[in-house]
Simulated scan of single mutants.
Amino acid sequence: MSISLILFDMNDVLCHYDRAARIAGLAAIAGREPEAIEEAIWASGYEDSADIGAMGADDYLRGFGERIGYRLTLGDWVGTLRGSITPLLEAIALAQQVRQTVRIAALTNNNFLVAREIATIFPAVPAIFGSAFNVSAEFGARKPDPEIYRRCIARHQVQAAATLFIDDSVANVAGAEAVGLLAHRHTSMTALTDLLLHYGILPAVRP
């Protein structure tokens, strides 16, 4: 079966995400120690609960501020997240190229606020993927739960065997494979380019 959809992860595929830098920025704004921010948001499971859609965008932002003891504005939240992201330009260029041949979409473990503000956080993503940028909160599950892949491909109306999933996480790749997706663990642009050449998605001569 030929590839009908390529499903890209975001963090550490299309960009490098530095959570420590984000936490440091939040700590500076809130006047708290980084360890307190880490505990309040990540170690507590708050971020994971938002990633499975347990709260809407505004409730998430309000609760985020309450947990770190600071009335965090949208600008504060967006600014610290955007500052922790470094676009991986070669991967972005590759996604732009392959969308000329096959449908593409993105699937990231993230919340409704990221979905709403992605044009400010990471402008290249909506420019490339448009409405095919999906966060886990939309599906009520986060990678590597097999259910998220089932729900995502159902939305895009493609079969599992015709979907190529690209992610840097071993666990996330295994979750995709468990429901029949073709899956590739992203380790280098060379390996990814070779894979796309193998499937005939890129021309035989590399750009």
Rank of each mutant, 00 (worst) to 15 (best):
L94T: 03
L94E: 01
L94M: 06
A95F: 13
A95E: 10
Q97T: 14
Q97A: 13
V98R: 09
R99H: 09
R99G: 12
R99F: 11
Q100F: 08
Q100T: 11
T101S: 09
R103L: 02
R103A: 13
I104M: 02
I104D: 00
I104P: 03
I104V: 14
A105C: 02
A106P: 12
T108I: 06
T108R: 06
N109S: 02
N109W: 07
N109V: 02
N110Q: 14
N110A: 15
N111S: 12
N111R: 04
N111Q: 07
L113C: 11
L113M: 13
L113T: 14
L113V: 14
A115H: 14
A115E: 15
R116M: 14
R116N: 11
I118A: 10
I118K: 05
A119N: 13
A119H: 14
I121C: 00
F122I: 01
F122S: 03
F122H: 03
P123E: 12
V125E: 00
V125H: 01
V125R: 01
P126E: 12
A127G: 13
I128W: 02
F129L: 00
F129H: 00
G130C: 11
S131V: 14
S131Y: 07
A132L: 02
A132S: 15
N134E: 08
N134M: 15
V135H: 01
S136Y: 04
S136I: 06
A137M: 04
A137E: 06
A137I: 09
A137V: 06
E138G: 09
E138V: 10
F139H: 02
G140C: 05
A141E: 00
R142D: 07
R142W: 04
K143I: 08
K143T: 03
P144F: 11
P144C: 09
P144T: 10
D145M: 05
D145F: 08
P146D: 10
P146V: 10
E147C: 02
E147N: 01
E147G: 01
I148P: 11
I148R: 07
Y149G: 06
Y149H: 01
R150W: 12
R150Y: 11
C152W: 13
C152I: 15
C152H: 15
C152A: 15
C152D: 13
C152P: 05
I153W: 12
A154D: 14
A154S: 10
